[in-house]
């Protein structure tokens, strides 16, 4: 089953390994990212940073069979780089039944983006994407680590409107 699909600009790093994996009891990590999949350096670095018994797959988003991941007998965590990739994953067949929870963990500041949580900056387009995913039945939240209080879509929109 897919325990969580997480948006993180840095993909695999300490917050994922030290907090989410133990909290969710994850047994497999799938990095769905075209750039990482095509970089030998990225593949080597990601493989060496995880504990030996935890398998990590690094594949282009289009190559991921979400149905098969959802049908697996163990908890899987899927990492994508940007909010736009969530929409891409949905277009590629990801359904709320396969992965009910979408977590926005780290999105760095950029032009047009406003502060939603200390680690998440979103643009108007990205908020619209999250709203559409919510309407499609996904549960969307923004937070970097499980011990933080999650911000749901209403809260995200409220903070976006309040931020300048």
């Amino acid at each position: 089953m897919i325990s969580l699909v997480r948006v993180d600009n840095r993909l695999l790093h300490g917050q994922v390994l030290e907090t989410w994996l133990p909290r969710l009891g994850v047994k497999e990590v799938v990095v769905a990212d075209d750039e990482a999949a095509s970089s030998g350096l990225a593949r080597a670095a990601m493989t060496l940073c995880v504990p030996p018994e935890l398998p990590v797959r690094i594949e282009p988003l289009r190559a991921i069979d979400f149905g098969a991941l959802a049908a697996s007998g163990w908890p899987v965590l899927v990492l994508v780089r940007d909010v736009a990739q969530l929409a891409e994953a949905r277009a590629a067949g990801l359904t709320p039944a396969q992965a009910p929870r979408l977590n926005v963990g780290n999105v760095h500041f950029g032009p047009g983006r406003r502060c939603v949580t200390p680690s998440v900056f979103l643009s108007e387009d990205e908020i619209r994407t999250l709203r559409e995913l919510t309407a499609a039945g996904f549960e969307v939240e923004a937070r970097s680590v499980p011990t933080e209080a999650p911000a749901g879509i209403e809260e995200i929109e409220r903070r976006y409107a309040a931020a300048r």
């Binding site: 840095r10 790093h13 300490g14 917050q15 030290e18 907090t19 780290n106 200390p118 680690s119 970097s144 680590v145 011990t147 933080e148």
Partner: peptide, 13 residues
């Protein structure tokens, strides 16, 4: 020390 052994700065957390 033991009480706050888990006080760790992970990324933005």
């Amino acid at each position: 020390e033991l009480l706050w052994l888990g006080a760790v700065n992970l990324g933005a957390a």
